[in-house]
Computed example of a mutant assay.
Amino acid sequence: MAVREYKKTATIKAEQFDGSFEMMEKYLIQYAPFLSEIAPSSYSIRTLEGDMKFGVGDYIATGVDGEYWVIKKEIFEKTYVLVEG
């Protein structure tokens, strides 16, 4: 069988995490200050696959069923484009 290329066609809602208390409260984000000097990914969010670590600047995506997951900034900016309108 030949290798084929696929493209995502679904749209998502996403927001870049800025480290604010408002976003932490909105997404029930946990902060581990003792990790902040060792690793930039000192925040944690509960996803369907379990807790996911991430940092300021990464994106939080919301799925069609209201579930959340994190997309690293570099991956998000290479993979997604803003839907106008």
Rank of each mutant, 00 (worst) to 15 (best):
A39P: 00
S44R: 08
Y59A: 05
T47V: 04
L48F: 08
L35F: 08
I71M: 11
G50T: 03
R46S: 06
I38W: 10
Y68I: 00
E67A: 06
G66D: 09
S36D: 14
G66Q: 08
S41R: 10
L48K: 11
A32E: 13
G66Y: 02
G55V: 00
L48P: 00
A32N: 14
M52Q: 11
I45C: 03
I60R: 00
S42C: 15
S44D: 02
M52L: 10
P40K: 00
R46W: 03
T47F: 05
Y59N: 05
V64E: 15
I38G: 08
V70A: 05
S41C: 13
W69A: 06
E49H: 04
S44P: 00
Y59C: 05
P40Y: 03
I45V: 15
K53G: 14
R46T: 11
I71L: 09
G63H: 12
Y43Q: 03
S36V: 06
L35C: 10
A32F: 15
Y43W: 08
D51Y: 14
Y68D: 02
D58S: 03
S36N: 11
A61T: 10
Q30N: 14
Y59H: 03
V64Y: 11
P40I: 01
P33L: 10
A32I: 14
V56P: 06
R46V: 03
G66V: 03
W69N: 08
E37K: 06
R46Q: 10
W69Y: 12
E67D: 15
D51S: 14
E49S: 11
I71T: 03
W69L: 02
A32R: 13
F54T: 06
I29H: 01
Q30T: 09
Y27H: 05
Y27D: 00
L35T: 06
S42A: 12
W69S: 06
K53L: 15
I60H: 00
D51F: 12
V70Y: 01
F34D: 10
Y31G: 04
D58N: 08
V64C: 09
I60K: 01
